[in-house]
Amino acid sequence: MANPAVKCDLLLGATNANVDLHSQVGNWTLTVNEDLPALEAEVIRKAWKEASRSVVRLEWVGGRNLLWEEMPGGAVATGLVISPDGLVVTSTYFFLDRPSAILVRFADGQIVPGRMLGRDFNRMVAVIKVNRDCTSFLPRFCPQPEIEVGMRTIAIGWTLGDEPGLAVGILSAKRRIWGKAFQTDARTSPRNYGGPLVDLRGRILGVIVPFSPDGKSPVAGVEWYDSGIGFAVPWWDIQAVLPRLAAGEDLYPAFLGVLFSGANPILAEPVVLRVHPGSPAEQLGLQPGDRIVSLDNQDIRRLSEIEEILQRRYAGQEISVEWVRDGTRFQGVVRLGVDRRVLQGGAVAPAP
C-alpha cells in the first residue's frame, strides 16, 4: 500500500469521492476507488501527529500582548521547538514585555521553565530558551522549492486541552506582507499564533503570526481573526535571524524617516513630502521635493518598491540611497533607525 502522504498528493486534486484515479508512481500502480474525504482525513491526522511532537504550550505570568495592557495570570500561547539545544520560537503578539515567569509544556508532558531571549518586532516572532535536550522534538522543514501556491496547509496551535488543535486550508499566496509572509486560508487567531503552518507531511512551512495586510494596524492582524486570511513567516527567514535572537537581541523594523507625497501607496511616485527631524533621512540630507531613484542598489519607480525594501530590513542595517534634486543626482549610505512610535499603543509595524 502506498504511503498515506503520497496517496494524498495524488488524491487531493480529486474532490468527488466517486472519481477513480489511476497513477503510476515508481514501480507500483495505484488505482484509487475509495472514500476520498476519509483518506484526506487520515493524511491530515498523520501530518498533525508528525508536527505536533515539536509543538509546545507556553504558560506565563506578567507582560503585555497586543490587545490587553496587562496579561492575566496563567496566560497561554503556542511555541515551536526549533533547535536541539532548547530554542523555542513563538509570536511577539504575546510578549511586548518580558514575562516574569514562563513554563514550557512539551508533547511528552514534561514541563520545564523557560526564559525569554530576543524578539523580532518586524516579523513578529520571539525566542524562548529551555534547559532541555530537544533533539527528539525537532521538526522537519519543507524545502523551499517544494512550497507551492495551492498546496494543502495545516495550522497548529496548543492553548486549550491536552493536545494541539488544528485548522486546514491551502497556501493562498507567497511573498505577502511586502514579501515577508505566506498567506493561508486556514483559520488563524491567538489560538495558534506562534504555532507552525505545515504541509501534508507534517513539515514546517513557517510560524503563524498576526500580520495585517495593511502592515500599519496598531493591533496587527486582529481584524483577520478566523477570517480565512492568515499569515506565517517562512522558516528560513526565522533561521536567518535566529543567532541574533538567541543572543538576546531585540530586532526592530527599519525606519528611514520620510513621508512621501501621493495618496496611493502602490502607484505613487517616490517624491519626499516631509523628513522627520533627527531621522536617518535627515542625516542623509534628504529634503522635501527630492525623488528617490535607487534604494539598496535597486532602481525605484514607485513608492511600493521602497516600502517592500524597507519592510524586509531591520533597524541598524545600512542601506544605500540615491535621489534626484533639481536635475542633480545625489547618493549616500545611512544606517536605518528605530521609530520609537512603533511600540506606542502596541503598534509594532514598520514605518517608512
Rank of each mutant, 00 (worst) to 15 (best):
S304R: 11
G202W: 11
R53H: 10
I170F: 12
V321Y: 05
S227A: 13
V55E: 02
P145V: 05
D250L: 06
Q110W: 03
L87E: 08
Q287R: 15
R335I: 01
D214H: 12
I156A: 04
F141A: 02
A347C: 13
A351T: 15
L21A: 10
R45I: 05
V76Y: 15
R45V: 09
L160G: 00
W60Y: 15
E308Y: 05
P196A: 08
V104N: 06
E40R: 13
N65P: 01
I309V: 15
L67C: 01
A77Y: 08
N18H: 12
E223C: 01
G262P: 02
A281Q: 07
R291K: 14
A351D: 15
D290L: 00
N27K: 07
I309A: 02
V127M: 09
M124K: 13
L96W: 02
L205N: 10
G248E: 04
R301Y: 09
I238F: 04
D214P: 02
R335N: 00
R57K: 15
D226E: 13
A181R: 11
M124S: 12
N131E: 15
H22Q: 12
V293I: 15
E42N: 12
G316V: 05
M124C: 03
M151Q: 15
I266L: 15
V333S: 07
G332F: 00
G257Q: 02
P270F: 04
R201L: 09
N27P: 00
S261F: 00
H276R: 04
S23F: 08
E308C: 03
P288N: 00
G248F: 01
N297F: 10
G248R: 05
N192I: 09
I156C: 04
G157Y: 13
E307V: 09
L284Q: 02
Q298V: 02
P164V: 07
N264G: 10
P280N: 01
P210N: 11
Q344R: 14
T153I: 09
G114C: 06
A263M: 12
K46Y: 04
W236C: 00
I229Q: 06
V334D: 08
L103Y: 09
D214T: 13
A246Y: 04
V219S: 13
V43E: 11
I128G: 03
D339F: 11
S23I: 12
Q344I: 13
G79D: 05
A41R: 12
L166D: 00
P164Y: 04
F137H: 08
G346Y: 09
G316T: 07
G345P: 14
E40D: 02
G289V: 02
R152L: 10
D9H: 12
R191V: 14
A220C: 02
V222E: 07
T29K: 07
